[in-house]
């Protein structure tokens, strides 16, 4: 019996096969932008084979649901829904930023402290969330959201939070503003462990049976077309 976990919302593809106690049996982290759709299913097949597991031994599927790249996040979510449907197993949805923050805590060997995960959202904004880690448990201090980088950095400064940041531009902006961030591609090797740990923590929504079809990405932002339409509807332009 095993658990699979995956995330495709950033430039990093993270995959894990673990046992029911959350011990990794095989995992993969690829920093290969725009190749997630190619690699996800074959890699998962290889990981299962490497762990001497069959897809029918999988009893739980953990998936990162974003926020992050819109196209990217749909890859893991669509795959998880199809696997959950065909194998009739539950899916646990974990925000990608939660996984990133947990991966950062793991990488730094911390069980306590404040952590922040950011993903470039262009125009000096970032998708993100910040957390308090208490004895290894992650407590989100806000909803995953998008806001100006300067606002994120102000929170991090106030809370003395360690930051993990995905996106080169974001790293450059942080450096320019004298803010220390850990680059995501350096922390990402801990993402498979983080996803499995969070997925088995019981703190996240579980989609089971008919509800597998309801699983959706966490986009945070409406599409530009919908935002414009909404603005019109409210009398603005």
């Amino acid at each position: 019996m095993s658990v699979i976990a995956m995330d495709t919302a950033t430039d990093v593809l993270a995959l894990a096969v673990a046992d029911e106690d959350g011990r990794l049996m095989s995992s993969l982290v690829e920093f290969l932008p725009r190749a997630h759709s190619r690699l996800l299913q074959p890699s998962l097949g290889h990981l299962l084979a490497g762990a001497r597991m069959n897809i029918h031994d999988v009893k739980l599927c953990v998936t990162g649901v974003g926020p992050g790249s819109y196209t990217g996040v749909r890859i893991a979510v669509a795959a998880a829904k199809a696997i959950g449907h065909a194998c009739a197993i539950p899916i646990v949805s974990v925000p990608t930023v939660d996984g990133m923050a947990m991966a950062l805590a793991c990488a730094e060997g911390q069980r306590f402290g404040a952590f922040m995960a950011l993903i470039d959202a262009r125009r000096d904004r970032a998708f993100g969330c910040w957390y308090r880690l208490e004895d290894g448990r992650l407590w989100a201090q806000c909803e995953p959201t998008v806001q100006a980088l300067s606002d994120w950095f102000a929170i991090a400064d106030r809370e003395r939070a360690s930051i993990v940041a995905s996106g080169r531009r974001l790293g450059d902006s942080a450096e320019a503003q004298g803010v220390r961030v850990r680059p995501w591609n350096e922390i990402a090797p801990m993402m498979p462990t983080a996803l499995v740990r969070l997925g088995l923590s019981g703190s996240y929504e579980r989609f089971e049976g008919e509800r597998v079809h309801d699983l959706a990405p966490l986009y945070v932002l409406p599409t530009e077309a919908e935002a414009k339409l909404g603005a019109k509807g409210e009398g603005g332009e």
């Binding site: 996800l40 299913q41 669509a78 795959a79 696997i83 065909a86």
Partner: peptide
Amino acid sequence: VGVTAAKAYSLA
């Protein structure tokens, strides 16, 4: 979306 789902169904 369709290709990803189809490949996951195929794997599963």
